[in-house]
Nucleic acid binder design. Structure first.
Length: 440
DNA sequence: CATAGAAGTGTGATCCTCTTCGTGA
DNA sequence: GTCACGAAGAGGATCACACTTCTAT
C-alpha cells in the first residue's frame, strides 16, 4: 500500500496492489505497454505481476531542508518558536514583528529564494528526520510533510511571474528553475488563499484575461481559513512594480486544494490584512474599470459573495479559540505600515539575507575563504554564519541530474542498440560468456 | 572460486492528471 | 450571462526493453 502523493499538483488514490516479490515475478512480456491500464484500472484491489511503482517524487524536500538550515542560520528571523503554533505568527505582536519594532522587512532584501519562503515552515512540529545529511535531489522520494500540499506546484508558477524582482537576483546556479520552485512553494505557503473581499483585487488584477482562476480563491472549505489567510492584493494600487515577493498572476492565489485536512492548518500564516496598509475600498470599487475587467470582476463577485457568506456562517459556528484572528473588516486592528518610512529606514542597512558578509574582506562567493574567516567558537554567531555558508554552498552544488552509480553501466547502455527507446537484442547476440570472451 | 539472481542503465512510448477553451442548454 | 460538459493540450511520471555488472550464497 502506498500512501505517497504527488508533489506536482496531482492527487493519487491509495493503491492496494498485491505485488509478487520481485524475485519471483516474471516480467510480463506484453506486446504493448498500454497493458498497464488494463491491469490496474478494473479494480481497486488488483493483483499485479509488476514491480510496484516507485512513489511519486516530492518536490518539497529541499524546501524542508532549506527551512531547517535557515532557521538555524537566522533564528531571529526564522525562529522555530514562531512555528510551533502557526497562529502565533499571525498575531500583530509576535516575535517576528518585535524584531523590527515598528518596521517590517522591506521585501526586496530577500535576496535568494531560500530565504523569504521559509517563514512559514512549521519546523517545530515535525521531527527533522526528513533532513538527511546527503544532498538529496529535489525529486527524490520523500515522505509526506505537513508543509506540503499539492496546490503549491500549480500556484507556484503563477506567483512566479509577478515576482519580477526575483529574476534580477540570479545566482550562479545551474538548476535555477528548480530552485525557483522551491522558493515559490515557500511563497505560496505564505500566500495561501485570500478571503478578503476581493472585488477590487479581482477587478484590477485579473484584467479579464487568463481564464478566471480567481474564482477559486475562496473555495477553501475550512472556515478557519478565513483567518489564517494571506496573499497580497497586487492590484491594489501598487501598480505591479512594487517589488514584493508576493506574486500573483491571473487573479491571485489558489486555495489549498487536496490538502490533507489533518494538516493543512499547520501552515503558519500571515494575515495580509494585518500587514497591509488600509485601502479605501469604496474608492477602489468606485473607480471605473475597463469593460472587460468589469465583466470578469462581476463574474467573480458573485462567487466571492457566495463563499464569503458560507465562510461567515462557518466562522460563526466555530468557537472563539479556533478563530483568534480578528476579521479584517474590524477597524483598528490593522497594522498600519508606512512603507516609505520602512524603505527609508532600511535603505542604509545591509540585508540580513545578503550574500556578502558585512565586514568581510573576502569578496564574492569564495565560500571556503569566507568560512575560514569565521570564528566558529565566538559567541557572535560564527556557527550561524558557517551554517549559512554551508547551506548556500550545498545548494549551489546540489545535483539535480540523475546520479549515475555505475558509470560502466551507463557506457554499456549508451552503446546498446535501441528500437524506439527500448533496448533490443544485438543482431548477433551471444551468451554472456561468449560476449565476455569476445570482449577479452 | 563459481553460480544465480538482482540491480541498473537510456530513451521513446504511454499513461494520467490538470488546465484551458469551446459549445450547447 | 451562467453553468455543465467534453475535447484538446500540457506536463510529468512510469514502463519496457537487453545486457552488463554487482552481490549474496
Amino acid at each position: 500500500m502506498s500512501s505517497c502523493f504527488s508533489g506536482s499538483g496531482r492527487t493519487y488514490a491509495f493503491e492496494l496492489d498485491i505485488v509478487k516479490s520481485p524475485s519471483t515475478s516474471t516480467r510480463t512480456s506484453t506486446s504493448s505497454p498500454s497493458s498497464t491500464l488494463s491491469e490496474s484500472s478494473n479494480s481497486g484491489l488488483a493483483i499485479s505481476t509488476r514491480k510496484p511503482r516507485t512513489p511519486r517524487k516530492r518536490p518539497n524536500q529541499t524546501y524542508n531542508e532549506a527551512a531547517a538550515l535557515l532557521s538555524t542560520a537566522y533564528p531571529n528571523i526564522f525562529s522555530t518558536k514562531n512555528f510551533t503554533n502557526p497562529r502565533k505568527f499571525t498575531k500583530p505582536h509576535d516575535s517576528f514583528l518585535d524584531q523590527s519594532a515598528e518596521l517590517l522587512l522591506p521585501f526586496r532584501v530577500i535576496d535568494d529564494g531560500s530565504s523569504g519562503f521559509l517563514i512559514g515552515e512549521p519546523i517545530g512540529e515535525k521531527p527533522s528526520s526528513q533532513f538527511e545529511p546527503k544532498a538529496l535531489i529535489s525529486f527524490e522520494k520523500m515522505c509526506q510533510s505537513p508543509g506540503e500540499f499539492d496546490s503549491q506546484a500549480n500556484s507556484n508558477s503563477n506567483s512566479m511571474e509577478m515576482c519580477g524582482s526575483y529574476h534580477h537576483q540570479d545566482e550562479d546556479f545551474d538548476a535555477e528553475s528548480i530552485l525557483d520552485e522551491e522558493i515559490e512553494e515557500g511563497i505560496d505557503s505564505i500566500m495561501g488563499s485570500m478571503n478578503v473581499d476581493m472585488d477590487s483585487v479581482d477587478e484590477s488584477n485579473n484584467g479579464g484575461g487568463g481564464g478566471g482562476r480567481g474564482g477559486q480563491m475562496n473555495s477553501n472549505p475550512n472556515p478557519n481559513s478565513s483567518n489564517s489567510c494571506y496573499g497580497y492584493p497586487m492590484g491594489l494600487g501598487f501598480g505591479g512594480k512594487f517589488e514584493f515577493g508576493f506574486g500573483l498572476r491571473r487573479g491571485g492565489v489558489r486555495p489549498l486544494r487536496h490538502v490533507d485536512d489533518g494538516n493543512w492548518w499547520s501552515f503558519p500564516t500571515v494575515d495580509v490584512l494585518e500587514i497591509s496598509p488600509r485601502f479605501n475600498k469604496s474608492q477602489s470599487s468606485s473607480t471605473p474599470a475597463p469593460a472587460s475587467v468589469a465583466s470578469a470582476g462581476k463574474k467573480k463577485k458573485k462567487k466571492v459573495e457566495k463563499l464569503s457568506v458560507l465562510e461567515a456562517k462557518a466562522a460563526a459556528e466555530l468557537p472563539k479559540e479556533t478563530n483568534p484572528i480578528p476579521k479584517a473588516e474590524e477597524p483598528g486592528l490593522m497594522l498600519k505600515l508606512d512603507y516609505e518610512d520602512v524603505l527609508n529606514a532600511w535603505s542604509d542597512k545591509a540585508s540580513p539575507f545578503s550574500e556578502e558578509m558585512p565586514g568581510s574582506d573576502v569578496p564574492g562567493n569564495d565560500v571556503s575563504a569566507r568560512l575560514a574567516q569565521i570564528d566558529l567558537f565566538s559567541d557572535a554567531g560564527g556557527l550561524r554564519e558557517a551554517s549559512v555558508l554551508r547551506y548556500k554552498e550545498k545548494r549551489r552544488t546540489r545535483l539535480f541530474s540523475k546520479k549515475i552509480r555505475y558509470q560502466v553501466r551507463k557506457v554499456n547502455a549508451d552503446r546498446r542498440p535501441r528500437m524506439k527507446g527500448r533496448f533490443v537484442r544485438r543482431p548477433h547476440s551471444s551468451t554472456n560468456g561468449q560476449r565476455q570472451k569476445e570482449i577479452a
